[in-house]
Nucleic acid binder design. Structure first.
Lengths: 197, 197
DNA sequence: CCTGTTGGTCAACGCTTGTTGGCCAACGTA
DNA sequence: TACGTTGGCCAACAAGCGTTGACCAACAGG
């Protein structure tokens, strides 16, 4: 759409004087998208957070959709599950996701937006297919059922994130990391490796 | 807020000539809220769906928030779990939720809106506390842990709804009712009745 | 036949949104 | 010093939003 491509695929751009501003906008955008969802996160509010003029956002990212795309370029950085003992897969998976969610607002933003925005949902489907599905395909006993098994894991993991970080159910938010691992790891382990339900 | 109270608590209102219109608006609102979320579901669009003037929506429901409140007066109609054998609790719970989600768009609307809208999240917390938590308190072995156990069940059930009805992950949407029950019932059973994780 | 109530339309209001184009200051060469 | 490029602000645009009030048609009761 725009001449100035904001895609991260760009090989090596020369460092520009405005890189700090760009990063500031991106950080503010992530926070706002995470807190308010796509529609309520206005470009004006993001610009004010970044202490910049709204028109700058447009110049650097083309449009609101472009900004969103740049702000939610999530990489789950899945660990190498070929090196994980099969009986520990569930536990490692829970631990990895807890790290991801706690660490930054990117995933919260993605989840919130995926629910109101068509493009956001598409992005989540893609992340699921490219990153969680291969794991299931690797560790489950019947490759044909891998998509279903991965979907069940996604449901459990996203459901926890939903109640804990978005809806903020008090008992869900109060769970410790150890409790979550203890309860969820066996569930995921079963979804991924059990011979039959 | 409004003189004309739209609360369902009103004991017995005399049947009005406009009841059909009111119901039409409510049905259209539910569909739009479920499909688009709170912000994108405009009063104008809802009115057009109901083949009515936007101002009628305002007159009957006071404001957009009032309309939303009326459109999402969800009652989970929980079955009586004192009559369910303890070892079948998980299965009955899954079945009941599948019935609820399939049957109407109310819950989809509620979920979508609970994620963007503050009042929506509050409503979901209330529904959780009033309807799912008592079940846990009744069947779990340690009443102190009932909130945590209920939260885990909510995470699993809402996560399934999220991936299946909102994000529409293909493998999740493709699961049959029987498969879902077979996989999820043991999980919920464990969350509710296991002595320890 | 008049008259008050109810169901409904129409046109506009004030506001916020994403987006655009013009203008200005600072910088990096030549 | 001159000048093109870059970073940035300002003011405005058109469109869409929720919301309002004036106005009309049909009906009911006296």
């Amino acid at each position: 759409m725009t001449e100035r491509a904001p895609t991260p695929a760009e090989p090596e751009a020369p460092p520009r004087r405005s890189d700090a501003t760009r990063a500031g906008i991106l950080a503010a955008a992530r926070e706002r998208f995470a807190a308010d969802g796509y529609e309520r996160a206005t470009i004006r509010a993001i610009a004010k957070d970044a202490e910049i003029d709204p028109s700058m956002v447009m110049r650097y990212y083309g449009s609101k959709e472009g900004l969103f795309a740049a702000a939610t370029s999530a990489d789950l950085r899945m660990p190498d599950f070929t090196r994980v003992p099969r009986e520990e897969v569930g536990q490692v998976l829970v631990g990895h996701f807890l790290d991801l969610w706690e660490d930054a607002g990117v995933l919260t933003a993605l989840l919130r937006v995926g629910i109101t925005n068509q493009a956001g949902a598409e992005r989540m489907r893609k992340i699921f297919a490219e990153q969680l599905l291969p794991v299931a395909r690797e560790v489950c006993p019947d490759p044909d059922a891998a998509p279903a098994r991965a979907a069940l894991c996604a449901a459990q993991l996203l459901g926890l994130a939903l109640t804990r970080y978005v809806l903020r159910f008090p008992p869900s938010a109060a769970l410790t990391r150890e409790e979550i691992t203890a309860w969820l790891a066996p569930t995921l382990q079963r979804y991924l490796t059990a011979e039959r339900p």
